[in-house]
């Protein structure tokens, strides 16, 4: 089970908001993390802690294929992104970097900004850790995505499959 503070965002959070193009010449993960979500919330990088969760509306990660969007969030401490829907390239990039993207149609109405949210994949539950009993519905994680996530990301999976050959 993964638990962390949830940060709420709206719909159509694009990759220019997650990490503006002017920072893409710098490949330092710490540098990218320092500017995570800067286009939407200047203080995000200073507020976010290891293990935190993003809760967002529709089409999270719309726009560019820049993997730095996933890198910035991962290294800022984010472990899970729960959104009503994702832009497809961002979704792939996120899981490739070991983030867990979860599609939940009612996440933004169920949770409150800053509260602790728990994700229990084994029992199929995403819930607020207070005793209110608030739970979000979510779609089953596709098996290929689960495989990559369980290997810690795509590089991890590629290494594993090499060993199995």
């Amino acid at each position: 089970m993964i638990c962390g503070r949830g940060w709420m965002f709206g719909s159509d959070i694009d990759t220019d908001k997650i990490i503006p193009g002017r920072y893409l010449d710098n490949y330092s993960f710490e540098f990218l993390a320092f500017h995570a979500m800067e286009g939407e919330d200047h203080e995000f990088a200073s507020k976010v802690r290891e293990g935190d969760i993003i809760v967002a509306g529709k089409n999270f990660g719309i726009g560019s294929s820049r993997e730095q969007a996933a890198i910035a969030l991962k290294h800022a401490g984010i472990r899970v992104i729960i959104a009503e829907s994702f832009a497809r390239i961002f979704y792939r990039n996120a899981v490739n970097y070991g983030l867990l993207p979860i599609i939940s149609p009612n996440c933004t109405t169920v949770f409150k900004n800053g509260e602790e949210i728990c994700v229990d994949l084994d029992n199929g539950r995403i819930f607020s850790s207070d005793d209110s009993g608030r739970e979000a519905r979510f779609f089953e994680i596709p098996s290929i995505v689960r495989q990559i996530y369980d290997a810690g990301g795509l590089v991890g999976l590629l290494k594993l499959s090499d060993e199995n050959e």
Binding site: S65, E67, A70, N96, L158
Partner: peptide, 13 residues
């Protein structure tokens, strides 16, 4: 379109 790590997978396999 894909991201860079997916491209690394194409390079590798």
């Amino acid at each position: 379109g894909i991201g860079a790590m997916d491209m690394a997978s194409i390079w590798a396999k």
